[in-house]
Design a binder for these strands. Structure first.
Length: 481
RNA sequence: CGGGGCAUGGCGCAGUUGGUAGCGUGCCUGCUUUGGGAGCAGGAGGUCCCGAGUUCGAGUCUCGGUGCCCCGACCA
């Protein structure tokens, strides 16, 4: 046995760390809070990027790149923004051996430097909308870090759009959070609740923040993506006005939205098990590993394996053969399970004689015999689709099983230790803060999707779980990452 | 920023009253193996985190420093 992973039941947090390291997704760096994303981890990010980037382009967005360094005076322009971000910023004070006349902030997010440009680019309503996305790294000097979930430097995409009206910006905010939900559910097989954040949880400088919130296997919530309505806050801070069709001057309306490499952490914590990573096929660079059992007529077995790989690759199913003789088949089984390859095919002399092979799926660990004929690629793609669907179904079932509606604060305190809690809230920040102080649970989301609202009758008025005051609606509470 | 832990071959660890460093795994070579992390034999590999001190002698004792991890408060 090589890298042994701590079991989830024994220590969930340690399980996560062991998994990330032994599946070679990421490694610690000697720089505090920073990580090295290894090829196995980066491959997942590349799959995510490809799918998201396509979805952004399909909705009219274009990519650009803005500088890593932001002048201090820019960051300082939006009061709430600097208050929120300044404490966690890295600041460059020297360059070329000289002290800089103005300090440069390493971007924690790019609103300010982008709006300094937008101010130059926008004069008329004819210049709007601007729909720009950038793929970049950002730095936030976090107190405490966790691989993928929270690191001092991370990779993300940030969309920054400029609009002529509040309504148009609102539509953009909802369109993008909708895309994130679609991506999470269709690609990551991760069910999410889409909705709004309370004021205390919203982005520094935003009027409104929408999010997608997911449940991890320990019942805790993870914010997987955000979309912000920035109102005219940044336009005002940067004096960015435009002339309307009617000839009036107005400040530009803004949105920003992002997802980060944190999604990789979400993916791991949602689906993986004590044997290692479990990857949804749509995010697996390598979907099928073929392991020849090299006994008897080795070259025939190896040729059989290669033929399967070639056939699958021709059908667009990424497959590869591990025919190395350095490791035993058993070793390879364990290794590729650790790495989360969705499907394994075993083929040996016995199979070859009977013109079949064994398929073992990563999610359920079930083994099936498959005939080696023209139907093989189809059967395999069916299994892969089935894995993708099964992961989503399982995660959704888990979320449902670990979501509880409560009507008393006593019930609340117990339930919130085990998952999501649906409860009435009086809408005040005071109540929210006290609940957080006493239970560590926060309001994760005010759901904004019909199915979820109906399922838990979120809009039904009632009595606040904490204060006993009238409450217009229920909200989702949970402990969060 | 508080509390705790760790620092010794690539990785994981042991190292007793101070005496010149060892185990597992991985790596290299060869042979035998191969349907759930194979076996045997041989081999390579270490500034013991850094600095100072005590001592004939420090991985070990003393003082100082650094780094990382974990748990909490803050955050995507």
């Amino acid at each position: 046995m090589a890298d042994k992973i701590t079991s989830r039941s024994q220590d969930y947090s340690q399980w996560y760390i062991d998994l990330v390291r032994s599946a070679k997704l990421a490694d610690y760096s000697d720089v505090r809070g920073c990580m090295v994303i290894r090829p196995n981890g980066y491959a997942i990010w590349e799959k995510m990027q490809a799918a998201l980037d396509r979805m952004f382009k399909e909705t009219g967005h274009v990519n650009a790149y803005f500088p890593l360094f932001i002048p201090e005076s820019y960051i300082a322009k939006e009061a709430e923004h600097i208050e929120g971000f300044a404490p966690e910023c890295a600041v460059v004070t020297h360059g070329g051996g000289e002290e800089l006349t103005e300090k440069l902030y390493v971007r924690p997010t790019s609103e300010t430097i982008i709006w300094a440009s937008y101010k130059k680019w926008i004069q008329s309503y004819r210049d709007l909308p601007i729909l720009i996305n950038q793929w970049a790294n950002v730095v936030r000097w976090e107190m405490r870090t966790r691989l993928f979930l929270r690191t001092a430097e991370f990779l993300w995409q940030e969309g920054h759009t400029a609009h002529a009206t509040r309504e148009e910006a609102s539509e953009e905010v909802m369109r993008m959070i909708g895309i994130y939900k679609k991506f999470a559910e269709e690609y990551m097989a991760l069910p999410v609740i889409m909705g709004r954040k309370t004021d205390s949880e919203k982005f520094a400088g935003a009027d409104e923040t929408y999010c997608i919130e997911a449940m991890m296997q320990d019942g805790k919530a993870l914010q997987a993506g955000t979309s912000h309505h920035l109102g005219q806050n940044f336009a005002k801070a940067f004096d960015c006005q435009f002339q309307t069709a009617e000839g009036r001057l107005d400040h530009v309306w803004a949105t920003s939205w992002g997802v980060s490499t944190r999604l990789i952490g979400a993916l791991i914590m949602a689906h993986s098990d004590d044997r290692g990573l479990v990857l949804p096929p749509k995010l697996a660079t390598r979907q099928v590993v073929i392991i020849p059992i090299l006994r008897g007529d080795r070259s025939a077995v190896l040729a059989g394996a290669e033929t399967i790989a070639r056939t699958l690759n021709q059908q667009g199913i990424p497959a590869f053969v591990d025919g190395s003789e350095q490791n035993s088949p058993g070793w390879k089984f364990a290794e590729y399970e650790l790495q989360g390859i969705p499907l394994r095919i075993e083929i040996g002399p016995r199979d070859l004689a009977e013109n079949k092979c064994i398929a073992a799926r990563r999610d359920t660990l079930e083994k099936t015999e498959l005939a080696l004929d023209d139907t093989l690629p189809l059967r395999i793609s069916e299994i892969l689709n089935n894995i993708q669907q099964n992961l989503f179904d399982k995660a959704l079932q888990f979320r449902t099983d670990n979501t509880r509606e409560v009507s008393t604060y006593e019930e609340f305190r117990l339930a919130v230790e085990k998952g999501f809690v649906i409860a009435h809230w009086d809408g005040t920040a005071e109540t929210e803060a006290k609940i957080k102080e006493e239970t560590k649970a926060t309001i994760r989301v005010l759901p904004a999707e019909d199915d979820y609202i109906q399922q838990y009758s979120m809009n039904e008025p009632g009595t606040c779980i904490f204060s006993g005051n009238p409450a217009k609606q229920k909200v989702v509470f949970a402990k969060a990452y």
